[in-house]
Amino acid sequence: MDIKLATCTYQEFMPDMGTPVRTTVGRPRFDLPYPLTAHAKLVTPTKELLGINARDAYEFSYRRLLNARGFGPVRDELLRIAGAYDLDSPLVLLCFDRYDKLTPPDDWCHRLFLAKWWAEQTGQEVPELGAPPRASAAPATLF
Results as ranks from 00 to 15, higher is better:
107 D>F: 06
32 L>N: 10
32 L>M: 10
4 K>W: 06
43 V>K: 03
136 S>T: 12
94 L>P: 10
84 A>F: 00
27 R>L: 15
91 L>R: 06
22 R>A: 05
69 R>Q: 06
60 F>T: 14
105 P>K: 02
24 T>K: 04
49 L>N: 06
109 C>E: 08
47 K>A: 13
73 P>I: 00
63 R>K: 13
23 T>M: 10
17 M>V: 04
73 P>C: 07
141 T>Y: 07
89 S>M: 14
108 W>C: 01
83 G>Y: 05
95 C>K: 04
7 T>P: 03
122 T>P: 06
43 V>C: 08
92 V>Y: 01
61 S>Y: 03
13 F>R: 01
34 Y>P: 04
2 D>M: 11
117 W>R: 00
107 D>K: 01
14 M>N: 01
112 L>W: 00
99 Y>L: 08
100 D>R: 13
80 R>T: 12
65 L>I: 05
73 P>G: 09
6 A>K: 05
80 R>E: 14
140 A>L: 12
68 A>N: 11
14 M>H: 09
78 L>R: 08
56 D>I: 05
99 Y>V: 00
103 T>K: 15
7 T>F: 00
5 L>Q: 02
52 I>E: 10
140 A>G: 09
11 Q>M: 11
113 F>H: 06
131 A>Y: 07
100 D>F: 06
36 L>V: 09
85 Y>F: 14
82 A>V: 11
134 R>C: 07
8 C>A: 15
91 L>D: 00
133 P>L: 06
96 F>L: 08
67 N>W: 02
94 L>C: 08
59 E>C: 04
68 A>V: 06
125 E>N: 07
53 N>S: 13
123 G>P: 05
32 L>P: 05
38 A>T: 04
51 G>W: 06
119 A>T: 05
39 H>T: 14
13 F>G: 02
126 V>S: 03
70 G>M: 07
127 P>D: 01
6 A>P: 07
33 P>E: 12
31 D>A: 15
67 N>A: 09
55 R>L: 11
125 E>P: 04
122 T>F: 11
123 G>M: 00
25 V>A: 05
108 W>K: 08
52 I>V: 15
140 A>V: 10
133 P>E: 05
116 K>S: 14
112 L>V: 15
27 R>E: 11
106 D>E: 13
95 C>F: 07
47 K>G: 13
129 L>H: 01
12 E>C: 01
